[in-house]
């Protein structure tokens, strides 16, 4: 066995113990007061606490304010096209299961233009941590109603108020076969946001975290009723879910015992219109991951390829008479 010297050991520890700065890159260009900043802080803290190697971590995003996220992480990042963060991330994970893959997507990106991918990503249940940065409005394109905008939202495309009931990302996600982790966080309770981000990261399978975040530019007051009244936020606590500090419980008294393995209850809680449930709604660690189901146990070596190709060619080969006899 190779024994490491004390110095080597110390050096390695230093190398593997990352500081917050190790994950920071560039100055975020989000507006002051934007909820994305809170998500970035929680995620950078997660990376540091978990000691994620920056080169083995990938943040994949689509288009929109939320999707600027990878630029502010000093990891690998993929800032792709509108709505397609999930299939890109799936490709990354399929090819490289050794990488830790996060997805940052917004309510327009995920629930509108990329909605088909959202449904199917839940079904594939790949080991990805997905953050839905839900500010209920299109930000980067300057204030258009999104699928999660509350009915009546006045925007540049709905100047007389939006016409449709908002889509509920939690109930939609919980309605899809193979769902394995659904949680909701809010940007104004950073402590719980971090706990949820951490639980999501530790879940094997697709962890879907909807984060209600404020948009100070276009919908500055939309979340005020919940932000200003702690009783309208319902913390979900359970020994198998999250448990909250005494300090937090003093402010957020409205707490509900909810076992995250209970799907029926999860759907009920998710359907709540008045209260904002915060915590883990559903978790099932036993749903198989697509990459595990599909990943070949064989290494793509030249020897294997040569043998495989020749076996296939044999099926279609017309041999000259003399060779035919030899082959037979």
């Amino acid at each position: 066995m190779n024994m490491m010297s004390a110095t080597e050991c110390l050096l390695q520890m230093c190398e593997e113990n990352f500081e917050l700065e190790d994950y920071q890159s560039g100055v975020p260009r989000w507006c002051t007061g934007c909820g994305d900043n809170a998500i970035l802080a929680a995620v950078q803290r997660l990376c540091r606490d978990e000691g994620l190697r920056p080169e083995k971590t990938v943040f994949v995003s689509g288009i929109g304010c939320s999707s600027r996220f990878p630029h502010y992480m000093n990891t690998y990042g993929f800032h792709g096209i509108h709505g397609r963060a999930l299939p890109v991330a799936e490709g990354v994970k399929m090819a490289r299961p050794d990488l830790t893959v996060f997805v940052n997507t917004g309510d327009g990106d995920c629930c509108s233009i990329g909605a088909a991918h959202w449904i199917h990503a839940i079904r594939y249940n790949m080991n990805l941590t997905v953050f839905l940065h839900d500010n209920q409005i299109y930000g980067l394109t300057k204030k258009q109603a999104s699928p999660t905008s509350p009915i009546g939202t006045k925007s540049n495309t709905t100047p007389r108020g939006s016409y449709l009931e908002a889509l509920n990302p939690l109930t939609v996600t919980l309605g899809v076969q193979n769902v394995s982790f659904v949680a909701q966080a809010v940007d104004w309770i950073p402590e719980v946001l971090f706990d949820i981000v951490k639980a999501a990261y530790h879940h094997k399978g697709l962890s879907f975290v909807r984060i209600l975040q404020r948009c100070p530019e276009w919908l500055p007051k939309s979340l005020d009723p919940w932000m200003n009244d702690p009783n309208k936020v319902q913390l979900l606590n359970h020994e198998n879910g999250l448990q909250f500090s005494a300090g937090l419980s003093k402010v957020y008294k409205n707490q509900l015992q909810h076992d995250p393995s209970n799907m029926d209850r999860a759907r009920e809680i998710a359907s709540s219109t008045d209260l904002v449930p915060v915590g883990i709604l559903y978790r099932n660690p036993d749903v198989p991951c697509y990459e595990d189901l599909r990943h070949s146990d064989k290494l793509r070596t030249a020897e294997l390829t040569s043998a495989g190709l020749n076996a296939e060619l044999d099926k279609y080969t017309v041999w000259p008479q003399e060779m035919k006899e030899k082959v037979a």
């Binding site: 990938v58 792709g80 397609r84 799936e90 490709g91 990354v92 090819a95």
Partner: peptide, 10 residues
Amino acid sequence: AFAIGASYAS
């Protein structure tokens, strides 16, 4: 997009 993600990482 899946193919692009896989190509990018591998």
